[in-house]
């Protein structure tokens, strides 16, 4: 479903990704781990089409479409969703208005009629309950004054609402307490579907206790240096990254 071939990317002239190769089949969940600065977030930004990053080589196909030929918003409409590590605030724009605009942009792309305000409200309320967000949040400005945990739940809510083909979760577990982690994980598990693939970027094994991945990859210096099953994450937790011959910053920070 998703095929990343020899992906190279740089930001401000600095090379970050040095040839990523990754195949993800429909229905699979892949976790990407690795020390700080290894290129995990860059990979997510490049897949979503952040123009601050330049792709210098490689190809990315989602269901046969070359994503790299598409603008950010076109990729989104083809089903690429990025749950942000640090969701930005948009003051004065209500979550409801923002989400309805997004949903209708997707619907338009698929030649469907706009969803009216009442219909949308009903849908949004249902989905917000799924991630334990008070529907009152819908009326607040986008991420405005949200706590870290609320922002992350809001991201997962958006994924549930937009039903992407490829969901990329960039450190969705960071800054969450145990209860919030459970809620967010339940949301992600609800996202699992036979026609969807999920990439989870994380530093920590604890997320993978809740969302068991099909594969775990270790990223270092912009390359995948090791891949394995869910057990690989446990091994990393126990041994750190040192045994793979790379710096062990993340584990040290833990």
């Amino acid at each position: 479903m998703l095929s990343i071939k020899n992906l190279h990317a740089c930001v401000e002239g600095k090379q970050i990704l040095n040839g990523i190769n990754l195949e993800i089949k429909a229905g699979e969940v892949h976790a990407i781990m690795g020390p700080n600065g290894s290129g995990k977030s860059t990979l997510s930004q490049v897949l979503a089409g952040n123009e601050a990053f330049d792709v210098t080589a490689g190809e990315v196909f989602l269901n046969g479409d070359n994503l790299l030929d598409l603008a950010t918003e076109e990729r989104a409409r083809e089903g690429v969703f990025l749950a942000f590590q640090y969701p930005v605030e948009i003051p004065g724009v209500s979550n409801l208005q923002f989400l309805r605009t997004a949903v209708n942009a997707m619907r338009k792309h698929h030649s469907k009629e706009d969803m009216n305000a009442a219909e949308f409200m009903k849908l949004a309320k249902e989905v917000s309950k799924q991630v334990d967000l008070d529907p009152a949040f819908l009326k607040r400005g986008v991420n405005e004054g949200f706590s870290g945990g609320e922002k992350k739940r809001n991201e997962i809510m958006q994924a549930l609402l937009l039903q992407p083909k490829l969901a990329i979760l960039d450190e969705t577990d960071s800054g969450l307490d145990i209860d919030a982690l459970k809620v967010v994980s339940d949301g992600v598990n609800a996202l699992r579907a036979p026609d969807r693939c999920i990439i989870m970027i994380t530093h920590y094994q604890r997320l993978l206790d809740h969302i068991v991945p099909d594969y775990v990859h270790v990223l270092a210096d912009g390359k995948i240096i090791k891949s394995g099953s869910a057990e690989l994450a446990l091994e990393l937790e126990a041994k750190g990254y040192g045994w793979l011959g790379i710096k062990d910053e993340a584990v040290a920070n833990q």
């Binding site: 724009v93 989400l99 986008v142």
Partner: peptide, 24 residues
């Protein structure tokens, strides 16, 4: 970052600016 968030959710750049300014 605001523009990227909006576009990542499928919203046209023009519509995103208009929405952000109206919010302001």
């Amino acid at each position: 970052e605001q523009m990227f968030l909006c576009r990542q959710r499928g919203i046209e750049p023009e519509q995103a600016v208009s929405m952000i300014v109206n919010g302001f």
